[in-house]
Design a protein around this nucleic acid. Structure first.
Length: 464
RNA sequence: UCCUCAGUAGCUCAAUGGUAGAGCAUUCGGCUGUUAACCGAAGGGUUGUAGGUUCGAGUCCUACCUGAGGAGCCA
């Protein structure tokens, strides 16, 4: 194991003269008369360590195997570097090849690859500069999520991944079964599949949201959050959708939509600030390679107030805009991508929180406003990303909730425990869901969600 | 799922319907405290697949496969 102080990140901080051992994977090797330059990286930071091997300290047949992708160990001494590009370098005394990477077949070269090509080598792409930076930022961002909530006394709750409630309306679900699919048991009367013989005695699925369970905990622990995998079986082929993604869902009792929005804004700013403070080198890399305005945008978002815009106002702005919409703007229609883009990228140029949507385009559990037409919903729309957060104040009035369930043709008995929460000790409460990978896209400037998750699952793709 | 675009050497890309090329990578040789090192040479291709038009197809047409972008769905 590489101890923390042995990481390349730390070796690069050492004073010249320190004896060290370095281990890592070779990025590139350059040979000169009597001396070899080997750049290695161990993932601890973006920067490589330059190892300098005098030819008489490493036999030629060994050096020949030190190729891009190979894993080596070098013992030697940190010295001041006479060359440009690094303050210190490792003067190697001995070199050991831990794992060769035959160049005839190793798929990665030292020159650049497209992100699409790297995606095909999911088992090697983490060794590239880009994905090294992506996953260091992902690690920091995940830590920041917990830090934010823990500092505020939120309880981290693990909501179930397997669920038998199939009516949350958040999207198509993956069914989970232990039945023999080639010959499932059937009911003699109707011929329908007999799920009483399935593992859970009824149809089961992978979760599409932990929200309903989080509400149970919020009405016991006041402030809670979930952070876990979520699954959607939609046939979505876009740079913004995954079949398996991670979602953060805070849920707060004694909290209305205003408090909900305040938390969402504070949360996003906290995450951005944390990553800027802790991943500066990686963010600079993204700015240089992928998104020239990245740092300015992040600083702008972290320091300016988000726009609060009621849906009705948004419709007004859009209908007065001097442009042709592919999809008509009318009160009652959901906002389309082109509309969201216009609001975030042209009208306001920063995140916009749209609130109080018509009830018919939102979920049954959102609290009905006094006007009887809109609900206390909020979507946080981010420039370039679209919807990054969706949330609402929940309907805590039993009779109103029951009416909404019936209105939508849902079955009351499926929600017996959800309604019980209103019948016994119910109180106003609110929450939202943040797509973790969408946040990753926002802070890194990466344009495809498949490149900010270690192993993307999309229709037709579940390799590695 | 629909629409659009793309698919040529291991990788990144060229090639008015007329002999498939370059850079990098690989192999060999040279030079050099190098910085995606540099210089020279060599090997490397059924142009995604299957049909079709044509004297002749990487190029035009059809279908399919794969990828990307846009849309829908959403986080």
């Amino acid at each position: 194991m590489i101890k923390s102080h042995e990481s390349i990140r730390n070796l690069l901080q050492l004073a010249p003269g320190t004896a060290v051992t370095a281990r890592g994977w070779v990025k590139t090797r350059r040979d000169s008369k009597g001396v070899h330059f080997i750049q290695i990286n161990d993932g601890s930071c973006l920067k490589d360590l330059q190892v300098v091997m005098e030819a008489d300290r490493a036999p030629a047949d060994l050096i020949a195997k030190v190729t891009t992708g190979a894993c080596i160990r070098v013992e030697g001494e940190m010295v001041e570097s006479p060359g440009k590009g690094q303050a210190v370098e490792l003067r190697g005394h001995s070199l050991e090849l831990l794992g060769a990477a035959p160049p005839e077949s190793y798929p990665l070269q030292k020159k650049k690859h497209t992100l699409e090509t790297l995606r095909e080598f999911g088992h090697f792409r983490a060794r590239s500069n880009t994905f090294g930076a992506v996953f260091r930022v992902r690690n920091a961002l995940a830590f920041a999520v917990h830090k934010f909530f823990q500092e505020r006394g939120f309880l981290y709750v693990h909501t179930p991944i397997l669920t038998t409630s199939d009516a949350e309306g958040a999207g198509a679900m993956f069914q989970v079964t232990t039945l023999d699919l080639s010959n499932p048991p059937r009911l003699p009367t109707t011929g329908a599949i007999d799920y009483s013989q399935d593992f859970f005695g009824k149809p089961a699925y992978l979760t599409v949201s932990g929200q309903l369970e989080a509400e149970i905990f919020a009405l016991a622990f006041s402030n809670v959050y979930t952070f876990g995998p979520t699954f959607r079986a939609e046939n979505s082929n876009t740079p913004r959708h995954l079949a398996e993604f991670w979602m953060i869902e805070p849920e707060m009792a004694f909290c209305d939509l205003t408090g909900n929005m305040e938390l969402a804004e504070e949360f996003l700013k906290y995450l951005i600030t944390y990553v800027m403070d802790h991943c500066a080198a990686d963010l600079e890399f993204f700015q240089q390679r992928y998104e020239p305005d990245l740092l300015a945008t992040l600083e702008h978002v972290a320091s300016s107030d988000f726009v609060r815009l009621p849906y009705t106002e948004a419709v007004k702005i859009l209908s007065q805009a001097s442009r042709q919409w592919e999809f008509p703007v009318a009160w009652g229609n959901d906002l389309q991508s082109e509309h969201e883009r216009y609001l975030t990228e042209e009208t306001f140029r920063k995140p916009v929180i749209v609130t109080d949507y018509p009830k018919q385009i939102k979920a049954f559990y959102m609290r009905l406003n006094e006007d009887g037409k809109t609900v206390r919903a909020m979507d946080v729309l981010a420039p370039g990303i679209g919807e990054i957060i969706g949330g609402s104040q929940r309907e805590e009035r039993e009779e109103v909730l029951v009416a909404r369930i019936r209105e939508l043709g849902l079955k009351e008995e499926d929600y017996w425990w959800y309604l019980d929460l209103r019948r016994y000790g119910g109180v106003e409460h609110s929450g939202f869901g943040l797509g973790f990978e969408r946040m990753m896209m926002y802070v890194t400037g990466m344009k495809n969600i498949r490149d900010v998750i270690p192993f993307p699952r999309t229709p037709g793709h579940a390799d590695f």
